[in-house]
């Protein structure tokens, strides 16, 4: 096995690391910045021209929306609103993370837990959980609790399901390997299953956060106008459409940026096995 060294070195030359299809946000990341700027500029231009051409009072142009946005930053109303909105979001997502990952991993590891809880999560993921938001308001009133529940209802299923699939899809060959070297069940879980599942669990967390944003906005629009929802409702009621558009665009951008940052964190954390993250 002495001369193998040179062969091995020669082989690295033509063995490229394999890249699987990159994740959703990674596809954005892969684009040169130029294309993104161009794409953004094109979108804004189409919006601006479209709005001016339509002459619809309810369809403010990009520049009007931008001014309204700057104005709301100036008077601080946007910051105040975000403060209110983030409260149920953070509480709800944290709860979903703890419970979702916990249950998901338990479902992946244990058949009995899977049998009992998986159908519930399948139903929750496929069903329009938003329909329950009015019901929740009905019972828990219009306070913080209802909004937290709304966030949890939307973000929990996807986090739990991803954690479950991540654990269930771990390579049988790796667990067999661990078994063949007399690894205990606990070593198998902590040293093989969880490390292998973590990229996909994290991807689920990212999707859960995106759902959580949806939940908190819905809650604020449906339950009682606070934070962002209040701004949207208020500006609509006084027909101040450019401000309303600005708020909506800001929350969309905020959500997308948060999710993109999570995606970047995901690739940074799991870099050596990037190809495994989906």
């Amino acid at each position: 096995m002495l001369s193998a060294n040179t062969t091995a070195q020669k082989l690295t030359g033509d063995s490229q690391p394999q890249h699987a299809a990159p994740g959703l946000m990674a596809r954005i990341g892969d684009r040169p910045v130029l294309w993104r700027v161009l794409s953004l500029a094109l979108f804004c231009a189409v919006w601006e021209v479209g709005a001016r051409a339509s002459g619809n009072f309810a369809f403010p142009s990009f520049s009007q929306t931008l001014f309204a946005f700057l104005e709301m930053i100036g008077d601080g109303s946007l910051f105040w609103a975000y403060g209110r909105t983030l409260e149920p979001l953070v509480i709800g997502v944290t709860f979903s993370l703890l419970v979702g990952i916990g249950t998901g991993v338990a479902m992946g590891l244990r058949r009995d837990v899977e049998w009992l809880t998986l159908p519930v999560f399948i139903v929750m993921q496929a069903a329009p959980m938003a329909a329950l938001i009015p019901l929740v308001t009905f019972v828990y009133g219009i306070g913080l609790a209802s909004k937290v529940v709304a966030v949890v209802m939307l973000s929990l299923p996807v986090i739990a399901m991803n954690s479950y699939k991540a654990v269930r899809n771990t390579s049988p060959s790796l667990t067999a390997m661990c078994h063949s070297f007399q690894g205990s069940r606990w070593q198998q879980i902590s040293k093989v299953i969880l490390p292998e599942a973590s990229p996909m669990i994290f991807a689920g967390v990212r999707l859960g956060v995106a759902e959580g944003f949806s939940g908190v906005v819905l809650a604020e629009l449906l339950i009682t106008p606070t934070g962002i929802g209040d701004l949207i409702t208020y500006h609509r009621s006084i027909a101040n459409f450019d401000s309303m558009y600005a708020v909506i665009v800001s929350i969309v951008v905020f959500a997308v940026v948060t999710v993109t940052l999570l995606q970047l964190l995901e690739t940074a954390l799991f870099r050596p096995d990037k190809r495994r993250s989906k």
């Binding site: 002495l2 091995a8 063995s15 096995d273």
Partner: peptide, 23 residues
């Protein structure tokens, strides 16, 4: 070293060819 992978200790499997992975 004995299987001929001296110098590759800190590499990750996806940076190796199939033959090297089996080593």
């Amino acid at each position: 070293e004995e299987v001929g992978l001296k110098g590759f200790e800190e590499k990750y499997p996806h940076e190796l060819s199939g033959g090297m992975r089996q080593r």
